[in-house]
Simulated scan of single mutants.
Amino acid sequence: MTDEDSLLPEQTAAVSAMLDLPEPAASSGGPLPPLWHWFYFLQWPGQTELGTDGHPANGHFLPPIPDRQRMFAGGRCQFVEPLRVGERAERTSSLVNAQVKHGRTGELLFVTQRNEIRQQGRTRVIEEQDIVYRSGRSSASHPEVVDPTSAPWPDAEWRLPVQPDPRLLFRFSALTANAHRIHYDQPYAREEEGYPGLVVHGPLLAVLMLELVRREEPRRVSSLAFRFRSPVFALEQVVAYGTRSEAAATLGTATHRDDRHATAEVTFA
């Protein structure tokens, strides 16, 4: 499957506003920050094509698992060259792996999707995304109520505190064309999926970790490996943190409940 996008600067301005940056992080002709390609190549299915959870009911790479729950588990990126804002880009997506496993709540399908993004005939970004589809509700335990007051303070060189609220989740959903109801429909998140509140997008945690790098490290990111381990809920106090080594950095996101909700490793060019 191949998609095209012009990488318009208006989108980077919108993302910058969401992150409270005083000016856009990239302008026309400038380099797109790592992972900001997630705000492009958006898919907008028709309303009747959505399932009850807000995800498309059918489409590319979607498995025929009954009552499936979709989770973005992690991935890897190679940033061969920076993408340039305002230049047309082409993304080719393919399915590289699918593995069925059986868990306590039913079938689990682990899917790896590969995306290659090109500009001016050159491959700029190579990405693999690991998606898990679960049949039935997760058996993982979650807090009964969200605590908005307890703050973590991990022992790390870099720290970026954030308290995601429903407004931030709404804007991130809009900027990524994500209609999954766990991010904006609190009764659905509680009653249908068993969460204590709205769920913070895993990709938002990854963007915050890379935003920390963008603010603190002048070297260009050349590779990234990340994993989403446990959910964060709206209004919890979150700290994205990182520690730099000679040619790499170790990253994470923490709440008072867990210091490894999401983790990542980056290397520098």
Rank of each mutant, 00 (worst) to 15 (best):
G202T: 00
G30D: 11
S150R: 14
R137E: 04
D185Q: 06
S16T: 15
S139W: 06
N178H: 03
A249S: 05
R219T: 00
F41Q: 04
F226Q: 00
Q119K: 10
S223I: 08
S222C: 14
V100E: 14
G136D: 06
A89S: 15
S138K: 02
H102S: 10
R215P: 05
M71Y: 11
P148A: 02
P231R: 13
P166H: 01
T112I: 06
A247F: 09
V125A: 13
E265A: 08
L42P: 03
E49M: 04
Y184L: 13
H102N: 11
Q11I: 12
F268T: 00
G74A: 08
P45M: 07
W38G: 15
L204N: 07
S138I: 02
V200K: 07
P33Y: 11
H142Q: 11
N115D: 07
L32F: 02
Q69L: 10
E265G: 08
P164K: 01
V85P: 14
V96E: 12
L108R: 03
V213S: 04
H201P: 07
Q186T: 11
G46V: 00
T2W: 04
R84S: 09
T12L: 02
R167T: 14
L168C: 09
A17C: 05
T112A: 04
Y188H: 14
L42Q: 11
S222L: 06
A177E: 05
D165L: 01
R215S: 10
A89T: 08
L83G: 06
A140D: 09
V238P: 06
P31D: 15
V221K: 03
T250I: 03
A206C: 10
G103Y: 14
R220M: 15
G197C: 03
S135W: 06
R171H: 11
L198I: 12
A249M: 02
P154W: 09
E4D: 09
Y133K: 04
T255E: 04
A57D: 03
R219E: 03
A151I: 08
V221W: 05
A26C: 04
E144A: 15
H142L: 13
R84T: 03
L204R: 00
P34I: 04
E265Q: 15
Y195L: 06
E157N: 04
E116F: 10
R190M: 13
E191C: 07
R70F: 10
R84Q: 10
R167Y: 11
P66K: 08
R134S: 10
D155V: 13
D130E: 14
R114A: 04
V132T: 02
F226D: 00
Y241L: 11
D259E: 15
E236P: 01
P196M: 10
R190Q: 15
R70Y: 14
E10K: 01
G242K: 06
W36Q: 00
G136L: 09
H60F: 12
H261Q: 13
S27W: 14
A206R: 07
R171T: 10
S173R: 01
L210S: 05
G252K: 15
V232M: 05
A240L: 02
V125Q: 02
N58A: 12
W153N: 14
I182E: 06
Q120H: 11
N178E: 08
